[in-house]
Simulated scan of single mutants.
Amino acid sequence: MTSSSLPKQTPPQGTAPADRQATVQRLAELRGGPDVPQRPLDARALAALAANPGCRRRALLDGAGVDKSAVAHALGSPAPFGQSQFALVRGNAFEAAVKADGGEVLLALLCEHTGAARPDPAEVTVPQLTADGPAGRAFRTRQALIEADGGRWTLLDHPLLALEVAGSTAYLEPDALAVHPDGTVSIIEIKSFPILDGSADPVKVGAAARQAAVYALALEGLRTVRESALLVCPKDFSNLPTGGLLQLRKQIAATRRQLRRLTRLEEIAAELPEGVHFAPDQEPAALTAAVESVPAAYAPECLSTCELAFHCRDRARSAGDVVALGRSVRGELGGLTTVDEVLAAASGDPDNAAAKDPAAATLRRAAALRAEALAAAEPATAPGPEAR
């Protein structure tokens, strides 16, 4: 594989210290106070946010570090979100196995897929990245990347990267980074789902590629990132590691574009009513009002990526919003945004404004076909005694 220098991202403009401190204080207030722990904004959350950049609700709550799972429970709409304990234990055990012996297995797989010469384990540098707090770990990672010696391999185990997103700093933790002798960096993602007969679940592979793209954005300006990341998974039904390459160029371009579309957090927070916060231990009515004060952009895909998805789905259904049926359906319906408008357009009533929408003719045809299908499916009426 040849390395490629990805398009450089213009570094975000620095925020004045006073403004930044005001934003940090405001986000702490939204969590319920400075004593409320901040939930980290990780690569998985950023990838999901990038896929739905129009959702201000998720952008603000994730950026402020609000515990959305606790909020969902308090609202009475908990979501079965996240990995099971068994999956977490299995994943941690697999990751520990492939990182044993100084990452010899990881580098062997990387060299196998990139065509590089396999290094002697004694010649691989594995810097210590421990430090107090996320900012300290991110600084140690940055220093290790800058100091990586060209001409030999460097393997970073669980580095921490910082990325500015919508006015908030996200700390991202790749499974591993490998600095090649030529100075380029490979992102390594370790997952517990299997690669069966050379292929894996495309949905899970796509999610891994989006996470890797977020890491690539955080690395810009530090090192040249290779255009492919290494995905390491169990082979078939064993615990033996195997790998494959994730192409990142398109994912990076799409993720960068989507993250740039996010409204800055201070702008969203400025539109909230006075005193609004998202502490889950407040009165249920107040918490509901606080959540509803931030516009959401629900789509069925949110059910697998956001803890508040059930709450937002219930609200979308109650409002009769067609987006609850999916983005593809919403796109087909044009200017018809509610279920009532869709039914009115399908009824054929010429006096209804919805009947003039370009999608109305298609809806009337679909309604007619549905009526025919239902009529054909009705069982024949049994003959009465007089007909026997």
Rank of each mutant, 00 (worst) to 15 (best):
A253S: 05
L262R: 03
S199E: 14
F237L: 15
E227T: 06
L287D: 00
L245N: 09
P284T: 07
P284N: 12
D236R: 08
L217P: 07
A270W: 01
L246Q: 06
I195S: 08
E267M: 05
A253F: 01
L196E: 09
H277E: 09
A290R: 03
G221W: 10
E267P: 00
Q211K: 14
R261M: 14
P234V: 05
A253H: 03
S192I: 05
S293E: 08
K204F: 11
E271T: 00
T255F: 10
A200K: 00
L262Y: 10
A279R: 15
A200C: 10
L246D: 05
L248K: 02
A208F: 11
A209V: 06
L196Y: 07
T263H: 04
G243R: 13
D236E: 13
P284Y: 13
G206D: 15
E227D: 15
I268S: 03
C233F: 02
G244Y: 08
A212H: 10
I195G: 08
E274A: 11
S293H: 04
K250G: 03
S293F: 04
A218V: 07
V276S: 02
P280I: 05
L265K: 02
K235V: 04
L240N: 13
P202C: 12
T242S: 13
V232E: 02
L246A: 09
C233V: 10
F237I: 10
K191D: 14
I268Y: 11
A289E: 14
K250R: 12
V232T: 04
T288F: 04
L248I: 03
I195F: 11
A213Y: 05
L259F: 05
P194G: 10
A289N: 08
T242C: 15
R264V: 06
D281H: 14
A270D: 10
P241Y: 12
R260I: 00
F278C: 01
T263N: 02
A289F: 11
L219I: 05
S199I: 06
V294N: 11
A229K: 04
E189I: 04
G244V: 01
P241D: 15
Q247D: 15
V294D: 10
I187N: 09
Q251C: 02
K235F: 14
R261N: 02
R257M: 03
I268L: 13
A209T: 09
R249H: 03
